[in-house]
Simulated scan of single mutants.
Amino acid sequence: MNIYKLGEITDKEAALNKLGVESGGISIMAKKMELMYFYIKDLKAPAANILKQDALSIGAELAVPGGVILCDKPTYDCILIGTKKHIEILSRKELAQPFGLKALAGELKKFLSSNSFPTRIMGIINANDDSFFEGSRFVAGDAVTQCEKMIADGASIIDIGAVSSRPGAKEVSGEEELERIKPICDAIHDQKLYEKALFSIDSYTPSVVEYSLRSGFGLINDITGAADEKIIELALQYNAKLCIMHMQGTPVSMQKDPHYEDVTAEVSTFFEDRIAKCEAMGLSREQIILDVGIGFGKSLEHNLALLKNMNHFTHFGCEVLIGASRKSMISKIIPTPTEERLPGTLILHLKAVENGASIVRCHDVAEHKQALAVQEALRS
């Protein structure tokens, strides 16, 4: 007899099926193989004690600070640990409990019913001369050629913007932005490139967004995350998707001492508010994409926390986008010029996909296509 310890099994049902497990037992066993962790903030002391006992009774665990049993404080932060099966049981069991546990059960159910989306690559093209990575700058005919190359390399989405959003970037008038983007939009429309890929307009200026949508674009990438009513109306009018990004401050000021009590919780609350506004106006969650805004009003610590907790944002039922391509957070880990940050970019993006992101916004499409293919092979 030989025995060896298995590494992480990503596709648990496929592994059990390959082993020859009876079909009826595969889904049951797969749930027992998936360990889940939930950080619960400000749980009422009585609720913490109830949840602790309920978790232990089914073989799960609730990590709590000392003093919880005595209710020394009114609320406590806790970590709930259990298999997917355990969480399913608790999400039903706590519906009958007081002290806010019914609401907790509802939140747990959302995480259990998260949608799964295929991984897609979004290529970046900047129709301006001051974006932080020189290799992404293209104009008119050159931009169209680059679009075609990115599509051939494996991009199913092309994101085009005419205004730099790098830290400290100067504001550009709507008229100038439209003048920069028009030739590219016209070429995409005339050559019907929108039939080959989904085109995204990286803008929050209504006139620019509308011109792009009329030219065949199908996604609005709004870095302000404001969910402006005019932008939502345009998304509805043209049946387009809307990407909502979180940013603290503006590009001019966003990196001047960004501060959060809990970055994951605060970004999550931001998305919850914006999604509610979009839905109230008629936009469905299938049309909404969420971007945590790596580098937009965040320190290195904030960026890393969001990447590690990327899976949290999947519970909204929207696609989640990651955009850390060649960003300065890499240089803060190990000093590296922008042109040499591809290795760090690939690591960040692969980890984000592993943690739930489904759209990868990047400058280097072919390299990401290869890396994602290898990652997928390791999963199977």
Results as ranks from 00 to 15, higher is better:
11 D>F: 12
190 D>P: 00
77 D>I: 12
116 S>R: 15
52 K>P: 05
309 N>F: 08
282 G>S: 15
21 V>P: 00
262 D>L: 07
303 N>I: 09
338 T>I: 15
294 I>D: 03
102 K>L: 00
32 K>D: 12
278 C>P: 02
313 F>V: 06
177 E>V: 03
330 I>H: 13
222 D>S: 09
64 V>P: 00
242 L>A: 05
379 R>Q: 11
228 D>P: 01
375 Q>F: 03
93 K>V: 04
253 S>P: 01
4 Y>K: 06
69 I>Y: 14
236 L>G: 03
327 K>C: 01
265 A>S: 14
60 A>I: 05
281 M>S: 10
351 K>L: 13
71 C>V: 04
263 V>C: 06
297 G>W: 04
148 E>C: 09
48 A>F: 03
293 G>K: 02
121 I>H: 11
82 G>P: 03
312 H>T: 13
63 A>W: 04
371 A>C: 14
319 E>H: 11
70 L>F: 13
78 C>W: 02
303 N>K: 12
119 T>E: 11
71 C>D: 15
135 G>T: 05
185 C>W: 01
189 H>C: 06
36 M>C: 07
92 R>C: 05
95 L>W: 06
321 L>G: 02
227 A>K: 02
97 Q>R: 10
218 G>E: 08
164 S>E: 10
273 D>Q: 14
47 A>K: 08
5 K>Q: 13
114 S>C: 14
195 E>P: 08
262 D>P: 07
98 P>F: 08
377 A>S: 12
196 K>M: 05
221 N>C: 13
61 E>D: 11
161 G>W: 04
257 D>L: 12
257 D>M: 04
224 T>G: 06
42 D>T: 09
170 K>M: 11
368 H>N: 15
58 I>G: 00
251 P>C: 10
49 N>F: 03
